[in-house]
Amino acid sequence: MRDFEYEAPTALADAVELLAGANGSAKLLAGGTDLIDHVRTGRLEPDLLIDIKKLAELNVLEASDSGLRLGAAVPCYQIYGNEQITSNYSALADSCQIIGGVQIQSRASVGGNLCNSGPAADSTPSLIALGAVCVIAGPNGTREVAAEDFCTAPRQNVLEAGELLVELKFPAPGGKSGSHYRRFIPRNEMDIAVVGVGAAVTLDDSGENFVSARIALGAVGPTPIFAQAAGDALAGQPANDDSIAAAAAAAREVATPIDDMRGTVEFRNHATAVLTERVLKTAIARARGEADGYTIGH
């Protein structure tokens, strides 16, 4: 392992300055659950690690009537330990509960998961489904990008030199809403998603019809995929097996998976539809306040 410098700024402006001044040779350290392994094995050789856990803006965790603010460095265990998140942004809690084990969850952050920009990231489909907006700070000020527009290719994203993700903003769910994320893994633990699906639905007052739905897919393309048409087509439809099956088929249409050590194209296409159905059913049950029948790992 190569030697590197370590800085832990306490002001956001200082962090941006350090990052911008390093000319691409700096890496941001939040939980470090991916970064440290990459540095240890030599896949990454940064000259400077900037620890961002001491920045107040990146540790915000605030749920109110106007929505949820989630700092980019907030670790998973705080997220699924927050009752407002588990009840109103369940998909996000679902994601955070299956990223690694307890030790990893104590360090790993959703912001880090998004910025790594892996196609199979477990939290990104939930961010997209829940309509999250990424707040980005850089040398030229602050800008906002929708979660579905953040990743651009495997391990690549919209962050420019000197920019860092500060927080994720989520709109407050309206009416009868429910959301869910689940993934398929061959074992029951310790795996990367072969396919992951996140969905958020809002039903009308009767609980029988969709008002709106957002569906996002993981591990079936070079980036997490916003299956916008599949969700949009549900608006105004009755929430029944037919509409769910149609959405599943539409989601499958936008998947562009590859064959690799985790799954085949055939399997991933098929599983995208199967998981979309299962995820929508769980999200609907949650919107209706019914038992959702979901157990982690299945």
Partner: peptide
């Protein structure tokens, strides 16, 4: 070999 680690060379865990 694309899966030369215990992440992707899947021996059973105690949950399996």
């Amino acid at each position: 070999m694309h899966n030369a680690s215990y992440l992707d060379y899947r021996i059973p865990t105690c949950y399996d």
